Structures are given as C-alpha cells and as structure tokens.
Lab assay of single mutants.
Amino acid sequence: MNLTVNGKPSTVDGAESLNVTELLSALKVAQAEYVTVELNGEVLEREAFDATTVKDGDAVEFLY
C-alpha cells in the first residue's frame, strides 16, 4: 500500500488496507498513544482509529 505520510511517500508492504491502529503499529510510530492522526485532511478522534480504514493513495499526518 502506497501512502503519503507526513508529506513523504511511504509504503506498507503486504497490505491493501489497514485501520489507523494497525497502521500506527506497522509504521512503528513512537508513542502512538499520544499521536493525533489526520487522514486526508480530517483530524480523527482516537475512538475512531479502529473503525477508520486507511487505503492505498491516502495522505496521513501524525501530529505530536
């Protein structure tokens, strides 16, 4: 899956889609429990991480 992460191209191997929690784990995001996630310009509530799917071509920003 090809994404733009914090403005840079990134690839997650072996996945066509992941939820936000899985993406944080796959990318080994440090202190993931404290990060705010913006997906395609929309800031996500932490409670929505498990239910929100990240797909090929999406833009993700991790805000600390």
Rank of each mutant, 00 (worst) to 15 (best):
M1G: 03
M1R: 04
M1P: 03
M1F: 11
M1W: 02
N2Y: 10
N2R: 14
N2D: 05
N2C: 13
L3Y: 02
L3G: 02
L3D: 02
T4W: 10
T4K: 08
V5H: 02
V5E: 02
N6K: 02
N6T: 02
N6G: 06
G7F: 04
G7A: 03
G7D: 03
K8N: 08
K8I: 13
K8E: 09
K8V: 12
K8M: 11
K8F: 10
K8C: 15
P9L: 12
P9I: 09
P9Y: 07
P9H: 10
S10T: 15
S10W: 15
S10V: 15
S10E: 13
S10R: 15
S10F: 15
T11K: 14
T11M: 10
T11E: 06
T11N: 08
T11G: 06
T11C: 13
T11Y: 15
T11D: 04
T11R: 15
V12T: 04
V12E: 02
V12A: 03
V12P: 03
D13N: 13
D13Q: 14
D13K: 14
D13A: 14
D13I: 14
D13P: 14
D13G: 10
G14D: 07
G14Y: 12
A15Y: 15
A15I: 12
A15D: 06
A15Q: 08
E16M: 14
E16S: 14
E16H: 13
E16W: 14
E16L: 13
S17K: 09
S17M: 11
S17I: 10
S17E: 09
S17N: 08
S17W: 11
S17Y: 10
S17L: 09
L18F: 07
L18E: 00
L18R: 05
L18S: 03
L18T: 04
L18G: 01
N19A: 05
N19Q: 04
N19T: 15
N19P: 04
N19Y: 06
N19H: 04
V20I: 13
V20F: 06
V20E: 00
V20H: 03
V20G: 01
T21Q: 06
T21C: 11
T21M: 07
T21D: 05
E22L: 07
E22A: 09
L23D: 01
L23N: 00
L23A: 01
L23S: 00
L23K: 00
L23P: 00
L23C: 04
L24Q: 00
L24R: 00
L24Y: 00
S25N: 12
S25M: 12
S25C: 13
S25P: 01
S25L: 14
A26G: 04
A26K: 13
A26P: 00
A26Y: 15
A26D: 02
L27G: 01
L27T: 02
L27E: 00
L27C: 08
L27H: 03
L27W: 02
K28T: 05
K28M: 09
V29L: 07
V29M: 07
V29K: 03
V29Y: 05
V29Q: 04
A30Y: 12
A30F: 12
A30H: 12
A30L: 10
A30D: 12
A30E: 12
Q31N: 15
Q31Y: 15
Q31K: 11
Q31V: 08
Q31W: 15
Q31D: 14
A32C: 14
A32T: 11
A32Y: 10
A32H: 11
A32P: 13
A32S: 12
A32W: 13
A32K: 10
A32G: 09
E33D: 11
E33M: 10
E33K: 09
Y34M: 10
Y34A: 08
Y34H: 12
Y34R: 10
Y34W: 13
Y34F: 12
V35F: 09
V35Y: 07
V35A: 05
V35L: 12
V35P: 04
V35W: 07
T36W: 09
T36K: 08
T36P: 02
T36D: 06
T36V: 12
T36M: 10
T36R: 09
T36G: 06
T36N: 07
T36A: 07
V37M: 04
V37I: 08
V37F: 05
V37S: 00
V37T: 01
V37P: 00
E38D: 05
E38L: 15
E38R: 15
E38C: 15
L39N: 01
L39D: 00
L39Y: 04
N40K: 01
N40C: 04
N40L: 01
N40Q: 02
N40H: 02
G41L: 03
G41D: 03
E42R: 14
E42L: 13
V43W: 07
V43C: 10
V43Y: 07
L44G: 01
L44A: 02
L44S: 00
L44T: 05
L44I: 15
L44P: 00
E45I: 09
E45A: 14
E45G: 10
E45V: 09
R46Y: 07
R46M: 06
R46T: 06
R46I: 05
R46K: 07
R46A: 06
E47F: 08
E47N: 11
E47G: 12
E47S: 13
E47L: 08
E47I: 09
A48I: 07
A48H: 11
A48V: 09
A48Y: 12
F49L: 05
F49T: 00
F49P: 01
F49A: 03
F49V: 02
F49S: 03
F49N: 01
D50R: 05
D50E: 11
D50L: 07
A51N: 13
A51T: 15
A51W: 14
A51F: 14
T52F: 05
T52I: 11
T52E: 03
T52Q: 06
T52G: 01
T52L: 05
T53G: 06
T53A: 09
T53S: 08
V54N: 01
V54A: 02
V54D: 01
V54P: 01
V54E: 00
V54I: 10
V54G: 00
V54T: 01
K55Y: 10
K55R: 11
K55V: 09
K55G: 05
D56N: 11
D56G: 07
D56I: 05
D56T: 10
G57I: 01
G57C: 05
G57N: 05
G57Y: 03
G57T: 04
D58F: 04
D58N: 01
D58K: 01
D58Q: 01
A59I: 15
A59Q: 13
V60A: 01
V60N: 02
V60M: 05
V60F: 09
E61P: 00
E61Q: 09
E61K: 14
E61N: 15
E61M: 10
E61A: 08
E61F: 11
F62Y: 07
F62G: 01
F62H: 03
F62V: 11
F62M: 06
L63H: 15
L63W: 15
Y64E: 11
Y64V: 12
Y64A: 09
Y64I: 11
